[in-house]
Simulated assay, not measured.
Amino acid sequence: MGRSHALSGWCLGLAVAPLVGLTSVAEVVPFAAATAGYALVPDLDHPGASASRLLGPVTGLVSAMIRTFSGLLYDLTKGPRDEDSTGKHRHATHTLAAAILLGVLAASLGDRGKWAVLAIAATGLLLAAHVLGDWLILAVLAAVGWSVIGTALPGTSTADAVQAGLTGIGGWIGVAVALGMFTHCLGDSLTRSGCPWLWPLPIRGETWYEIRLPRPLRFRTGGWVERILIAPLLLAGGVLLLPGALQAVEQLFDATSIWLAGR
Rank of each mutant, 00 (worst) to 15 (best):
L240E: 04
E83N: 01
A34Y: 02
L44K: 01
A17K: 08
T59D: 09
A39L: 03
T207E: 03
E210V: 03
V249Q: 06
A164D: 14
A99W: 04
P80E: 07
V117Q: 12
T68N: 11
F69L: 12
G124Y: 04
A152H: 07
I228M: 11
D188N: 15
D160V: 04
T35Y: 02
R263H: 14
V16M: 10
A34E: 09
H46Y: 08
P202H: 09
A139I: 09
A17I: 08
L7D: 13
G87E: 03
D254L: 09
V62N: 01
A176K: 08
R204S: 10
A119N: 06
V16K: 03
R220N: 15
C11G: 08
V144D: 11
L61R: 11
W172Q: 05
M65P: 00
G187V: 01
S70T: 12
D84H: 14
G170P: 10
C195W: 02
P42Q: 08
E210I: 01
I258W: 10
L186A: 09
I120G: 15
L242C: 05
A64L: 10
L61Q: 07
A39K: 00
G180M: 02
Y74I: 00
L242N: 07
R81N: 15
L7Y: 14
S63V: 06
L190T: 09
W146R: 14
L235W: 13
P154F: 05
K114T: 13
A51I: 11
A34W: 00
A122P: 09
R227I: 04
